[in-house]
Computed example of a mutant assay.
Amino acid sequence: MNAKLRVATYIYEHTAALFDGRVTIEGADATFETDALVSNIFQRTVERRYDVSEFGLTYFLRTFDLPDSPFLALPIFPNRNFRHSAVFVNTAAGIESPRDLAGRTIGEFALYGHDPGVWMKGILADEYGLTPDKCRWVIGGTDHPIPPFDWIPQPVPEGVDVRHAADGETLSAMLESGEIDALVSVDVPRALLNGSTKIARLFPDYETVERDYYRRTGIFPQMHIVAVPRETASRTDLVTSIYRAFHEAKEIAQRTYRDGAAKQHMSVVTPWFSGHFEENRALLGEDWWPYGLAANRTAIDTFLRYHHEQGLSKRRLTSEDIFVPALLDT
């Protein structure tokens, strides 16, 4: 009898084939769900509403400090992004370099240590000597007020000044007014998109910085994994089928771009896209969005170190601690 699975993930181009039926999970009768806000999927994951679900890395790792940690991860990374582009500053604050953030008040989206925040705090500490305790932190929504995410553990390390924005406040407005000096956010402030000259990126030429970061480290930062309950993790055939299905869906998306190069990607609406594609292909390789542990271990181990150093994990976890045993050799 096939396993019945309730699966939740955002609809990306590399998961679309799962939703439209081009790819199925062998040995399972799966139904797929999504949400416009991926954090809603995370919350329902914590509430144990899904059998398989996309889960933000920091949200997932925080569950390991619960009395009975309920999940393990499959080495599937539906969301990843370079994050130097996620740091914004008030242009009147006199911040010209990352080291100028010392002593400043910085906003952070959603919670202290959201996934881009963990990556950027770690990078700022490793490469510029700027540790989180040297700044003050205000947590909130970028363009819309949000309440604290009280459905997930929210550790704050000793010696780090963290508070939540007041009711009705947004970090974008606070940044534009100068109430905060900088912002780390997955969302680009609407004011910047609308042409405000009071907000700028800390790294104006972020693409060059991020490409250099990849050349030096080999890290393409992961934001999310796919999680399953521990009782599912022991079903080797099933978790292998889930992994293969997500991998096949991703390969369909990547193959579309590789095949499209012969026609200069005439189906893509973005001008000069083929040039960008070839540049990325030359840097990142034929599989520029890899799944499996072998191709991602360096990045994952780096995130696990950052998570522990930033006081978000009680102990430094390893890849062997967090991934389904049957998929450690992928």
Rank of each mutant, 00 (worst) to 15 (best):
T298V: 11
T256R: 14
P290E: 10
E309T: 03
V160L: 01
R235T: 10
V118Q: 04
D321V: 07
E309I: 00
S172R: 11
S69H: 12
P229C: 01
A282M: 06
A245E: 00
Q43W: 06
A165N: 10
R80S: 05
H276T: 09
R22H: 02
V138A: 01
S241C: 09
A3Y: 13
A92N: 15
L18K: 09
P325E: 03
A262N: 13
Y128L: 09
K121Q: 14
T236E: 14
L312P: 07
F220G: 06
Q154Y: 08
Y112H: 10
T197G: 12
A294Y: 07
P153F: 05
V268M: 07
R258H: 11
M174V: 12
K250N: 07
G218A: 10
V7L: 07
H144K: 15
T131S: 14
D329P: 02
G94E: 06
F203A: 03
L66R: 15
G195E: 01
A110V: 05
D287T: 09
V38D: 08
A125Q: 11
A282E: 11
G117S: 15
E47V: 06
R255E: 10
L183S: 00
G56Y: 06
S172N: 10
G292K: 02
L5V: 04
G292S: 09
R230A: 12
V269F: 00
D237E: 15
P229T: 01
S234F: 13
W151R: 00
S39A: 08
V186Y: 13
D35C: 05
I225S: 12
T236V: 12
Y243T: 11
Q222W: 02
G195K: 01
K121R: 15
G311W: 03
I300R: 07
L66S: 14
R49Y: 05
G27R: 08
T270A: 13
L192E: 11
T270K: 15
Y112K: 03
S172D: 08
V46H: 05
V118H: 02
S234L: 07
E127V: 11
P148E: 10
E96M: 08
A93R: 06
T58Y: 02
D29K: 13
D161H: 00
R80V: 02
I180W: 00
H14A: 01
V268W: 00
P271Y: 03
A3C: 12
H14V: 01
L66D: 11
R315H: 12
E286L: 11
L61W: 08
D35P: 04
Y112P: 02
R48F: 00
D35W: 05
Y59S: 12
L175Y: 04
R44V: 11
D20S: 05
A191R: 04
W137I: 11
E248C: 03
A299P: 11
V184M: 04
I180E: 01
G94N: 07
F220D: 07
D51K: 13
S53L: 01
